[in-house]
C-alpha cells in the first residue's frame, strides 16, 4: 500500500477552445474508511489559475500553505498576478527543494496565460511528486484514479471544445473513472476557466 493511496482522491485538467477545466472528487479517506465527502483539493491561485493537489492529505494542506506564502510574497512585491507558466515553475521548484524527502503530492494546474498580443490562451500542466513538469496540450491526470482517468479521457476528449461541452466532457470523464476507483469519488467539483469568468459546479455522485 503506497503512501500516495492513503487518503485517496484524483484530479484532472483539460484544454478546450479558449477555456480550460479542472475537476476533482471530494473524498477524504483513511485507507478504506471514508472521513469526509467535502474535502477540497482544488485551490484558486489567481482569478484565472486553479491548482489541484491529489495525494497525501496532510501534504495537500502543507503544500497549499507553502505555495500560498510564496505566491503572496510574489504578488505583493511584483505588484501583479503571477502567470501560469511562472506559477508552474514555482510549484516545481517548491517540490524539488524536497527531492530526498518529498511531499506526496502530484499537482495539476489549469489556467489562462497571457499571449504577447494581449490575448489569453489555455494552459495546463502537471508534475510528479518531485516537481518534474509535464506541459500537455490536451489533458493531464493525477491521483488514485489516474490510470482510469487516462483511459476515459483518451476516449472522450476532442480538440476545441466550447466551455459547456468541455464541462460535460470533464465531468463524465471524472465520474466514470472515479466510479471504478475505490479510493476516489464521494462527489466532485468542476471549475471551467474562460477568458472572462470561472464557472464552478459541484457534481453529485455515487456515495459508495
Amino acid at each position: 500500500m503506497s503512501i500516495m493511496d492513503h487518503n485517496g482522491g484524483s484530479v484532472i485538467a483539460m484544454v478546450g477552445k479558449d477555456c480550460v477545466a479542472i475537476a476533482s472528487d471530494l473524498r477524504l479517506g483513511n485507507q478504506a474508511l471514508g472521513i469526509s465527502s467535502n474535502f477540497q483539493r482544488i485551490f484558486p491561485v489567481t482569478d484565472r489559475i486553479y491548482l489541484g493537489l491529489p495525494g497525501l492529505a496532510t501534504d495537500v494542506a502543507t503544500l497549499h500553505e507553502r505555495l500560498r506564502f510564496r505566491l503572496n510574497m510574489y504578488t505583493i512585491k511584483e505588484e501583479r498576478e503571477i502567470e501560469p507558466e511562472t506559477f508552474a515553475h514555482l510549484v516545481s521548484s517548491t517540490l524539488y527543494e524536497h527531492r530526498f524527502g518529498p511531499y506526496f503530492i502530484e499537482p495539476v494546474m489549469a489556467g489562462m496565460s497571457k499571449t504577447p498580443s494581449g490575448g489569453l490562451k489555455p494552459f495546463i500542466a502537471a508534475t510528479d511528486l518531485i516537481g518534474c513538469l509535464n506541459f500537455a496540450k490536451d489533458f493531464v491526470v493525477a491521483g488514485t484514479a489516474s490510470s482510469k482517468l487516462y483511459g476515459v479521457a483518451e476516449g472522450l476528449w476532442e480538440p476545441d471544445l466550447e466551455p459547456e461541452d468541455l464541462f460535460e466532457t470533464i465531468s463524465q470523464t471524472l465520474m466514470n473513472a472515479v466510479d471504478r476507483d475505490a479510493f476516489s469519488g464521494w462527489g466532485g467539483i468542476v471549475h471551467v476557466i474562460t477568458k472572462d469568468k470561472v464557472i464552478t459546479r459541484t457534481l453529485k455522485a455515487r456515495m459508495d
Binding site: E65, R66, R68, F69, N72, M73, I76, K77
Partner: peptide
C-alpha cells in the same frame, strides 16, 4: 512586515 504576516497565515490560516 509582509513576511511576518505571511508567517502568521501559514501557522494559523
Amino acid at each position: 512586515a509582509r513576511t511576518a504576516a505571511q508567517r502568521h497565515l501559514i501557522m494559523y490560516n
